[in-house]
């Protein structure tokens, strides 16, 4: 009896600090985002896939909102920034990867279709102007189905 009264007197904040509680919700939102993404990719009915896609987007937005609120309350410390030399090194290495991929497409005679990726990197990205990739609309709909 006495024990029970004592238990009831403990507030939720004492049982679990608000920061931990918020982190638990954030972790679950992240898990649910992954689950909705998996569910969407494994749905065969178009309506079901669309539903999971909508739920995925909503959940992503909620996760972002909660993250922002937690960061503003100093409840979340972001990972330290990557060093400049590391970024430089990765750019250099992966420019080669992209170049090789394009050469590969060229050898296969498929360069035409893939060229927008390269153009984006070399011209649009550097000049800061984004031009819509020129692919026919019927082809585009296949990508975004």
């Amino acid at each position: 009896m006495h024990q029970q009264q004592h238990t009831q007197a403990i507030s939720m904040q004492t049982l679990m600090p608000e920061k931990d509680l918020a982190y638990t919700v954030l972790a679950d939102l992240k898990r649910v985002v992954r689950e909705y993404a998996t569910a969407a990719t494994e749905s065969s009915c178009p309506q079901t896939r669309q539903m999971f896609t909508n739920l995925l987007n909503n959940t992503l937005r909620m996760q972002g909102d909660l993250f922002n609120a937690m960061q503003q309350q100093n409840m979340y410390s972001v990972a330290s920034p990557a060093l400049r030399q590391e970024v430089d090194k990765q750019i250099k290495e992966h420019q080669q990867v992209i170049q090789q991929a394009e050469q590969h497409l060229q050898q296969l005679g498929l360069k035409q279709q893939a060229s927008f990726g390269g153009q984006y990197n070399q011209q649009q990205h550097l000049q800061g102007q984004y031009i819509q990739p020129q692919i026919p609309t019927n082809q585009q709909s296949q990508f975004y189905m």
Binding site: L21, Y36, A69
Partner: peptide, 28 residues
Amino acid sequence: YVVDSISNEDLLMKQCAVVVAAGSSPAL
């Protein structure tokens, strides 16, 4: 997937209710 998702949403809803009921930060 649908029934697992209903359980997930149920759990998240209850967790959020705890934050609203017991939290101290108005923003959260």
